[in-house]
């Protein structure tokens, strides 16, 4: 198995000078292709910060963060933009574009890729929505969908680009138990089919069972469970 995410001695802190607030301390972790890893931990333990660094959204300066063989430490914006295109992001809130229909929202992931035709884009987006069980809601706008449905649209949006990695930040936080469970099971099932790595941050203990591995982060330090 190949290593998709390889983090070594990552240190990260907010602020500067005497106000420096370390968030991540000497974090080392490597995640293989197709693995599903859950990161749990109390609020303020640095989970989301860690995720944004892996996702190329936040610049870290110390240690080594290799994602898909790209070094993120002190990297250019260009490199990170390229990497982001191979990463599917699922947010705490669904973060769908409210002026677009479900189909158009999912298509947004594919519009970065100029190689596809408009028709191929629509077809692939529609297939993905059917796969998440929203085949009858293609032309609904987010306002017309329930919370669980919206999160499923955002799962479809993350997966449709066939990313190598899915990063999910508390994807079940705004959902009730049942739809939360449905959403992550769906995610797991679709990811397993395509050998996609999933890194999922949560403190929802109800969904721990989907993980291959659970990592606990406390005060910026990793505690393997």
């Amino acid at each position: 198995m190949s290593t998709v995410i390889d983090v070594e001695h990552l240190n990260f802190s907010f602020g500067s000078g005497v106000l420096t607030q370390p968030v991540l301390k000497d974090v080392t972790i490597s995640i293989e292709k197709g693995e599903i890893v859950l990161i749990t931990g109390p609020s303020g333990s640095g989970k989301t910060t860690f995720l944004t660094i892996i996702g190329g959204l936040r610049q870290a300066f110390h240690g080594s963060v290799k994602v898909l063989d790209q070094q993120f430490i002190n990297s250019s914006e260009q490199i990170k933009v390229k990497a982001r295109q191979q990463i599917g992001y699922i947010f705490q809130q669904h973060n769908l574009l409210k002026s677009l229909t479900a189909l158009q929202n999912v298509s947004m992931t594919l519009e970065i890729n100029a190689a596809l035709t408009e028709r191929q884009r629509r077809e692939r987006a529609a297939e993905m929505l059917i796969a998440v069980g929203l085949g009858d809601r293609l032309d609904y706008k987010p306002d017309q969908l329930s919370g669980g449905q919206r999160q499923r649209v955002s799962i479809a949006r993350a997966l449709v680009g066939q990313p190598k990695i899915i990063l999910a930040d508390e994807p079940t936080a705004s959902l009730d138990k049942q739809s939360g469970h449905e959403a992550v099971n769906l995610l797991k099932q679709l990811a397993k089919e395509s050998q996609t790595t999933i890194l999922l941050v949560t403190h929802d203990y109800r969904i721990l069972d989907i993980a291959d591995r659970v990592v606990e982060l406390e005060d910026g330090v990793i505690k393997q469970v």
Binding site: A83, Y89, F91, L97
Partner: peptide, 14 residues
Amino acid sequence: RNEFATLKAMGYEQ
């Protein structure tokens, strides 16, 4: 803002 940030996270450039 939120939507633009989301798109940025998806790999859209500035």
